[in-house]
Amino acid sequence: MSKAAVSERLGFFTDTTVCIGCKACEVACKQWNDLPSDGGELRAGGSYDNTKELSASTWRHVRFVELLEPGGGNMPSLPAGGSPLPAATPELPSGHDDVDLLEWAESAGGDRWLFMSDVCKHCTNAGCLDACPTGAIFRSEFDTVVVQADVCNGCGYCIPSCPFGVIDRDHEDGRAAKCTLCYDRLQDGLEPACAKSCPTDSIQFGPYDQLVERAKGRVTALHQRGIDTAYLYGAGDTQGEELAGGLGAFFLLTERPERYGLPAQADSPIKEGVRQATLAAMAAGLVAAAGVAAAFAVPGRPSRANQLASRLRGWPR
């Protein structure tokens, strides 16, 4: 097997401005990784997205964001439980006579339907990796974050530790799984399956630094074209402002992150707070132990002298 010569950091730059929402990436990923279909039903309020979220059996997921007048882009927030919603845009004008349809049609100029192919971010500060107690999750020679399926025991700790809701435990198989950035393909010098299948190069794969450079240039170009809401999610930030230390798989977005179900700020939660939390907890533990001891020391006990005496007598029965 020919190991790829390079082992610099590899990643994804997903440019949502050229994504056509075809879901080829989602299918290619399932096919390459032999992931099962989840079946399912048409999802109320889900636009063309019936997948809903990344999961143990869906490592690429194309989100659909409908931003159309006159709802003003008020596609209702989808409760995570997937409970059915009432009809979209309830605040539509009801008396039809006063709807000026032609005016409405003209307001359509601002209509947008955004597609975004979501994936594991391969964080520099990976919450999942920090959390994993078995070492199943490791950082590969390509600086990607990979789960070893044969080590994972399904403790599930990585799941709430990922601020992006990526990794999940398979309900049948019991192990946690997520995008490997096609570790097996990378080892063979091949482009990941999803990027390979993307017809419009919305998913761009390559050496991280190159990608970041290109992505920054893209943002600048879009700004020059008047799309000043374009920004990079996960790369190109000044130090201290990065998302999870910088995302190995980063995105070019044109709406605020929450519209795509992404947090505005994120870091490995363990990196963020485990120290303080541990100190607080240990301190509390000591206080508690001391408190218990103290409780034994208040009146109503055998007298102090007694205690002292018995102690001097050496641990009586």
Partner: peptide
């Protein structure tokens, strides 16, 4: 793999018609 992406037959209608006929999304 394809069927799960659009799992059921559906019909696209506008919200005003839906409101008129009492049809709800999904």
């Amino acid at each position: 793999w394809l069927a799960e992406l659009q799992p059921e037959m559906f019909v696209e209608i506008d919200p005003i018609l839906a409101g008129d006929r009492g049809i709800e999304d999904g």
